[in-house]
Simulated assay, not measured.
Amino acid sequence: MDLKRFFRERGYAEEVLAKPPTVILNFGLVTERVEGNLVILSDDRPLLIANYAPGAVRSRERGLLAYARLAYPQKPPALALQTNGREFALLEVASGKEIAFGGPEIVPPYEKLKDFSLPPPLDSRKRLIEEKILFIQTTGG
């Protein structure tokens, strides 16, 4: 699934769609590079991170939350969207709660993204936890 095309078809402007940064995790002798699919920006501030992967959507939610928090530790996005192309889960990054699940109709329009409160910066204690979660989610343990 081409997420950029998906969002453009829903009225999102090309200039707000970008590739999110790579998160590099180092645990002992293992270095893992985790890349996201798409971020939606407003004035260089991330509003939503979207990820496509085949399979069970809900099984990937926690890893996406960790990625969203680590990719933008000073200014995390308000929302994260996990999809397999048929099912979509919209998550609140601050609380980690799923706020909507269903088809593409759950994706808010761009202007509504600005209504969601942005989470605080990621503190150093939580950063280590998120790094471990993302490592486990991307490597299988």
Score class of each variant (00 low, 15 high):
85 G>Q: 01
122 L>R: 03
56 A>G: 08
33 R>K: 14
94 A>D: 08
53 A>R: 13
49 I>K: 08
13 A>D: 12
23 V>M: 08
56 A>L: 06
94 A>L: 13
111 E>G: 10
55 G>S: 12
37 N>P: 05
23 V>R: 09
71 A>Y: 03
116 F>N: 01
78 A>R: 00
70 L>N: 13
17 L>D: 01
77 P>T: 13
16 V>M: 06
17 L>T: 04
52 Y>H: 07
81 L>I: 09
80 A>H: 01
45 R>K: 12
82 Q>W: 05
102 G>K: 15
102 G>F: 08
48 L>V: 02
135 F>A: 02
105 E>P: 00
69 R>H: 05
35 E>M: 08
10 R>G: 00
52 Y>P: 01
57 V>S: 00
113 L>E: 00
137 Q>L: 02
68 A>L: 06
69 R>A: 09
96 G>L: 09
22 T>H: 06
117 S>N: 07
98 E>K: 15
111 E>W: 06
72 Y>I: 04
50 A>T: 11
17 L>W: 01
25 L>N: 04
48 L>K: 01
138 T>N: 12
18 A>H: 14
51 N>T: 10
45 R>Q: 13
73 P>H: 14
21 P>H: 08
33 R>G: 04
89 A>L: 07
107 V>Y: 02
84 N>F: 11
127 R>V: 05
113 L>Y: 04
78 A>W: 00
63 G>T: 04
